[in-house]
């Protein structure tokens, strides 16, 4: 079936783990919009959600770091973090190895990816699921882009990864939704944690919402690192979703910097024709 849903969402662990320390007004507005996104997602009746996360050394390390990886298991466990620290209980999430295999085979025609038959979810995937599939009853296909351990795949390759995911989603009979998670500007888990470059975020989202390929691919790693922190490597997940919805335009559901969450909290969807 043609792709049924595409969106992007923040995944910082503080969103759930440090909820009690945030300004309740802005926090609750953010949560309410996450729930609105859940309703929009559910309305498209997806059979599976393809979550493009940014790994944080939960499954992969620099001894063998894939640029792109896709999970291929019938179930996944998470969170790998202490549930109390993250504020999310330990759960088993349904997967579908057969569906993964079919999508991976299609993606591999144009992008060389790794597959993984074992995968433990970290906050990068479990935080968005906590809001978007709170009963953990929707089949998940996890994907990962290396955004933390340079050298990172060029943004142009993240775009191509997204295009390949789209082709794969359209080629299977199931109704597929995709979500990119991460970023935008942030300095997570460093002494700068809490710093957010709001103008940079808004400029990035302006390009994303217009699906401005040239604008999105023009960021360099070095300048992004200087302006938007090492967490900005995670824009790759947003770029992939833009690649998957090439030529479309998006809607911003929510954006607000929430320093205790270490990130400008972002929720947006891209129209899928």
């Amino acid at each position: 079936m043609p792709l049924v849903f595409a969106g992007v969402a923040s995944h910082a662990p503080g969103i759930t783990g440090r909820a009690d320390q945030a300004d309740p007004v802005v926090r609750d507005e953010f949560y309410a919009n996450y729930d609105k996104m859940r309703q929009e997602l559910e309305a498209t009746r997806p059979d599976a959600i393809f979550v493009i996360g940014a790994e944080h050394f939960a499954n992969f390390f620099m001894n063998n770091m894939p640029a792109f990886a896709v999970g291929m298991a019938d179930s996944y466990e998470g969170p790998i973090e202490d549930p109390e620290w993250l504020g999310i209980e330990a759960v088993t999430v349904p997967g579908n190895a057969d569906l993964s295999k079919r999508m991976i085979s299609e993606i591999m025609k144009t992008v060389d990816i790794s597959y993984a038959e074992e995968w433990k979810f970290d906050h990068g995937i479990i935080v968005p699921l906590h809001f978007l599939t709170p009963r953990y009853d929707l089949t998940v296909i996890p994907a990962n882009i290396n955004c933390q351990g340079p050298p990172l795949a060029p943004l142009s390759r993240a775009w191509e990864f997204g295009r390949a995911i789209r082709r794969a989603a359209d080629s299977v009979p199931e109704r597929i939704a995709i979500i990119g998670t991460g970023g935008l500007s942030h300095w997570p888990a460093t002494p700068d944690s809490g710093k957010i470059n709001e103008p940079w975020d808004r400029e990035f989202m302006d390009r994303w919402l217009r699906n401005d390929k040239e604008g999105l691919l023009s960021y360099t790693d070095r300048q992004a690192y200087i302006d938007a922190g090492q967490g900005a490597g995670e824009i790759r997940t947003y770029v992939a979703v833009a690649g998957a919805t090439e030529g479309s335009t998006g809607d911003l559901l929510f954006y607000a910097p929430i320093p205790i969450f270490s990130v400008g909290c972002t929720l947006a969807t891209m129209k899928v024709a």
């Binding site: 340079p150 002494p191 700068d192 809490g194 710093k195 957010i196 470059n197 070095r222 320093p259």
Partner: peptide, 26 residues
């Protein structure tokens, strides 16, 4: 990864970005 641009402390880093440090507001 933090050595790429040098890490010289929160205040210096914030001013290099032309920003007030918003760290204390957490």
């Amino acid at each position: 990864v933090y050595k790429v641009t040098g890490y010289e402390g929160v205040e210096a880093h914030a001013s290099a970005l032309g920003q007030e440090s918003n760290i204390g507001e957490e």
